[in-house]
Amino acid sequence: MDTMEGKMNTQKADPKPEENKVSSVKIKVLFFARARDLTSLTEMPLEVPSGSSAHDCLNDLVARFPGLEEIRECMVLALNEEYTTESTIVKEQDELAIIPPISGG
């Protein structure tokens, strides 16, 4: 776990201890529009157990930022700048983008 991730996690319990034994992947999460407001972040590193899906990543993020629940049903999910479904397995260094729609104009 790198230091950035360590800092982000200080307030949150790490995933269940047994999961720390299995290998993990580090990805980058990008937040857009309302997701930025709800997390106060534009991006963050995220470490999840190997074999985790985008769905698992989202669950992890919603646990960290419960406000994200608000847009859970209304967002475009992109993995490495391409549309993805929640069942896709994330890999090391993947970029997961959370893109809720903007309505303003």
Binding site: R34, E70, I71, E73, C74, P100, P101, S103, G104
Partner: peptide
């Protein structure tokens, strides 16, 4: 699914 009204900012 439409965004919840709270997410619709003006």
């Amino acid at each position: 699914t439409p965004p919840p009204t709270t997410a619709c900012q003006r």
